[in-house]
């Protein structure tokens, strides 16, 4: 097992840092460049949600990434201690969005690009998004869990 933990300020400019850091860490597995691009989109969505929805764009908080590589599998956890969600199932519905300028596709992309997606959220406590993907094998889109 190989682990990495990264914490960074909840600033929009750190979304790029997060996706590149994750891609660099998991690239030791047998992922193709196309796989890594998909993983970067999923990480970008989860971290953007933490910043925009978890912390309401307040840059004075921390987003935590916990990365694990075990065998052929990588696991990414994106954790915030922000507002949390009352209704996780509703938030994960395609096209659900609290902002008309956002497409509500964040969770849809995470599901499409990961083998497994689970979301734990507690109002006023925060949200933990866990994404798992296996390297080197054909992949099916994740069936979401809560």
């Amino acid at each position: 097992m190989n682990r990495a933990v990264i914490e960074f300020s909840s600033r929009a400019e750190n979304v790029a840092f997060a996706r590149v850091a994750v891609a660099a860490f998991v690239s030791q597995l047998d992922f193709t460049l196309s796989d890594l691009e998909e993983i970067k989109v999923a990480v970008s969505e989860a971290v953007s949600n933490a910043i925009v929805h978890g912390y309401g764009n307040d840059p004075n908080h921390m987003v935590r990434l916990e990365l694990t590589i075990s065998g052929d599998y990588m696991e990414i956890e994106v954790i915030d201690r922000g507002r949390g969600m009352e209704d996780v199932a509703r938030a994960m519905e395609p096209a659900y969005s609290t902002d008309p300028e956002r497409m509500g596709l964040g969770f849809a992309f995470m599901q499409s690009f990961m083998d497994k997606l689970s979301v734990e959220s507690t109002p006023q406590k925060g949200t933990r998004v866990k994404m798992i993907r296996r390297a080197g094998v054909p992949r099916r889109a994740a069936v979401p869990e809560q």
């Binding site: 989109v41 969505e45 902002d99 300028e101 497409m103 964040g106 992309f109």
Partner: peptide, 13 residues
Amino acid sequence: DFVDSSGLGVILG
């Protein structure tokens, strides 16, 4: 080189 749903939201809007 990269776009996520926030960028797609700008296009759709």
